[in-house]
Each structure stands twice: as C-alpha cells, then as structure tokens.
C-alpha cells in the first residue's frame, strides 16, 4: 500500500485533534495501517495545532518538510504557515474564512489578503481546493463542525484508502449524540464542496 502523509493544521478550538483521531479510527476500522501524531500543549490558549496522519504502513509519526501528500488547513493564514510541508505535487485543502490571530485583533500586525495569497499557493502546489468551510458548518447548523466539513472534503479527494462508510461510522460512534446529525451534514457539505471545487 502506498504511503499517504496527511498534515492537518488548525487554530486551537477548531477541532483538529478530533478530526485526526476519527480518521485514525476509521483507518483501523477498515484495516489500513495508520499512525497519528499530535502536538498538544497550548491548544486551548489560541495557538496553532498541528497533527499528522500517516496511512499505508510507514512507521514515522511525523511528516517532514516537503513530504506532505495532502495538507488540510482549517484557516487560510495557517495554510501559508504550513506550506513548507508541501511539494509541487501536494494537494492542499483549505478553509478560506479567516480567524484573525490576536496580534491582528489588537492592531499589532496586519492580516494579509488571503484571497491573493491563496492564488500564489495554488500555483506552487499540485492542486488547491479552497472554499468557505465555516459557511458550510453554519449551513449544517453547527458552527463548531468545521472539522467535519474538512474531513468531508478530504474524503472527496478519493486519495484515501479508507472508505467513506468507515469515517461516517466513526463520526456516529465517537462524537456527541446530539451533534451526530449536524456533523454528518457538515461532512456531506464539505464532501460536495470539494468535489465541486
């Protein structure tokens, strides 16, 4: 099985670790070799949270510079910040809705024009799929379901050896009951958005 290295990046509170864990569970459920790694710590304090999911049998729990096959980013500035993991064949999925860091909120730094900057990103990598995932989470009537939207988009790429039914099973089993319908809806909206992009 070909090794597939996926890097997820988000801001603390966006649900990155849950998404990575669900993907790991789905891989185990469908018999795909998997290693997941997380950097914990300052997540609740508004910092960047990065995780990696390596499918297909490699042992190393981290993805080195230039070696990500897929990058899933929950925030456009973080897409730029993680770009050193990308090579010219990397598939980049990104939410386009900015979540300005505190330094921007208090006027200590400008927030770049991400629409323009994402165009630059698109020219550097294999493929860029950019859409307002937060809008889809809101359509799913669960603003915290951006992580499910991004998972849906990731599965729509068709690059994973893990089937959609496994990830949906894990969403049903491992997320809070009252959020399951909106989580599944968010997943489906993300899936469609990535197919259409």
């Amino acid at each position: 099985m070909k090794t597939m290295r996926i890097v997820n990046v988000a801001v603390g509170g966006q649900g990155n670790l849950l998404a990575s864990n669900l993907l790991g569970q789905a891989a185990l459920d469908s018999g795909v070799p998997v290693v997941v790694s997380e950097i914990h710590g300052m997540a609740q304090r508004g910092g960047v949270v990065e995780s990696a999911i390596i499918l297909g049998g490699a042992r190393s729990p981290v993805v080195a510079d230039g070696e990500a096959d897929i990058i899933v980013s929950f925030e456009p500035v973080e897409t730029m910040r993680i770009l050193n993991k990308a090579n010219r064949d990397t598939l980049v999925l990104t939410n386009t809705r900015p979540l300005p860091p505190f330094t921007v909120a208090i006027g200590a730094a400008p927030y770049p024009d991400t629409t323009e900057a994402l165009k630059v990103v698109g020219r550097k990598v294999g493929k860029l799929i950019a859409f307002d995932g937060q809008d889809l989470a809101e359509q799913a009537e669960n603003p915290l379901s951006l992580n499910m939207v991004m998972l849906g988009a990731l599965f729509a790429t068709g690059e994973l050896a893990v089937p959609v039914k496994s990830i949906k099973k894990m969403i049903r089993q491992n997320t809070k009951k009252r959020f399951v319908p909106s989580n599944i809806k968010a997943f489906d909206l993300g899936y469609k958005a990535a197919l259409a992009a």
């Binding site: 801001v11 603390g12 300052m42 609740q44 304090r45 508004g46 910092g47 960047v48 510079d65 230039g66 070696e67 500035v77 973080e78 730029m80 910040r81 770009l83 050193n84 993991k85 990308a86 090579n87 010219r88 064949d89 990397t90 300005p100 860091p101 505190f102 330094t103 921007v104 200590a108 730094a109 400008p110 927030y111 770049p112 024009d113 900057a117 630059v120 990103v121 550097k124 990598v125």
Partner: peptide, 22 residues
C-alpha cells in the same frame, strides 16, 4: 529521491499566533 519543499517566495508576511491568556 525526495520531493523538494515548495519555495515560499510570494507568500506574504504572516501575523504570529502566539498563545495568550484566555
């Protein structure tokens, strides 16, 4: 043979995202 990281030319300066007291 290893893929090279993409060049970061043309990527704007990014605002820091340091952790902060809640």
């Amino acid at each position: 043979q290893a893929p090279r990281p993409v060049s970061l030319k043309g990527i704007p300066d990014l605002p820091g995202r340091p952790p902060n007291l809640c």
